[in-house]
């Protein structure tokens, strides 16, 4: 029984030749990139996300040099300015701080939490998933034991402890979300590895004396690319939502550090009085998450070796 993976792996069964492999993956990459460039929807999404990231990184410069505002300066008497009022492009928030500048700084916080936490959990998920799926046995049992234990303790509880032990901030939230979020994808990777290792091309590689690590990295991981990339993109999007949900429950990033989530939570109370305070962070979250989903899909399609051009 042949599988879809054969086509991408048959050329490297010979092994030992790094050059050969490099050439192959290069061409796969080029092919994927070419496809990606032609996928307009994905490119637009990618562009938007990059723009968001740029704006967030440039927040200090933009707010000081262009907007000339201090995003931390609370002046309650200047609160709830509307859009464009008194030179505030997006108005002011409930404490009279420039809303646009705060959105930019909040972008720094929200995007970096989502990105780094997703990367952290993906790294753990991929390495553990492939290892346990390939070797099975005692390693598998141990990891599954660990996952079960971890998943059985309410996550809110762990968050509570962490937010008490560490000062509640972006760093601790990245750590906790990253360390808690990998189990689902890890099981997916493990399951996929389970079935991959029984396939003919892997059996063949093993028969030819390839080391387990070589098989894992050269044959199994490339076949997991689609799962990993989709998961990563969706994860980043989902983590932005998780962060805002935690803010709502009082366990997320707390003021005065702005995040899109806590800005939205705080503004919901003033929904009727200052709708612009709710709309702006809402739109930013919406667009970013949507783009991440689209990018996930687009990259998956691009990397799919069997896609007809």
């Amino acid at each position: 029984m042949a599988t879809q993976a054969t086509s991408s792996s048959s050329t490297v069964v010979s092994l030992g030749n790094g050059q050969e492999e490099f050439v192959r993956s290069e061409s796969l990459m080029q092919k994927a990139l070419r496809r990606l460039v032609h996928d307009r929807l994905t490119m637009v999404a990618l562009g938007i996300v990059l723009l968001m990231a740029l704006l967030a990184i440039g927040a200090p410069f933009i707010s000081q040099q262009i907007l000339h505002v201090d995003y931390t300066k609370a002046e309650p008497l200047k609160s709830f300015f509307g859009i464009g009022e008194n030179g505030h492009i997006l108005g002011t928030d409930d404490l009279g701080r420039d809303h646009l500048a705060r959105l930019l700084y909040a972008g720094q916080v929200s995007l970096s939490i989502a990105f780094f936490a997703a990367m952290l959990s993906m790294t753990i998920a991929l390495s553990l998933g492939v290892t346990t799926g390939y070797f099975g046995g005692i390693v598998d049992d141990l990891v599954i034991w660990f996952i079960t234990t971890l998943n059985s303790i309410p996550q809110l509880f762990l968050l509570l402890i962490v937010s008490a032990a560490l000062a509640p901030g972006p760093g601790s939230l990245i750590l906790i979300l990253g360390l808690l979020g990998w189990t689902g994808i890890m099981r997916l990777v493990r399951g996929e590895t389970f079935s991959l290792r029984e396939r003919e091309f892997i059996v063949a590689a093993r028969a030819m004396g390839a080391s387990p690590w070589r098989i894992m990295f050269a044959h199994i991981v490339p076949n997991l690319i689609s799962i990993v990339v989709i998961s990563l993109a969706i994860d980043i999007g989902a983590l932005i939502l998780v962060e805002s949900g935690l803010s709502f429950l009082g366990f997320g990033i707390q003021p005065p550090i702005p995040s899109w989530g806590n800005m939205l939570t705080g503004a919901t109370t003033f929904m009727r009085r200052a709708p612009h305070l709710v709309i702006a962070p809402g739109i930013l979250i919406f667009i970013t998450v949507l783009c991440m989903y689209i990018i996930g899909d687009g990259i998956r399609d691009a990397f799919d070796p069997t896609t007809a051009d």
């Binding site: 929807l41 999007g237 939502l241 805002s244 949900g245 709502f248 989530g261 939205l264 939570t265 919901t268 929904m271 709710v278 809402g282 979250i285 919406f286 667009i287 998450v289 949507l290 989903y293 689209i294 899909d297």
Partner: peptide
Amino acid sequence: DQFTRVGAVVGNAVPGFWMGIMLIL
């Protein structure tokens, strides 16, 4: 495909608490 690709996630791209309050409103 294109429609559902965007459509299925549109509703899922805002925080749940916000979605809930907006629907109630």
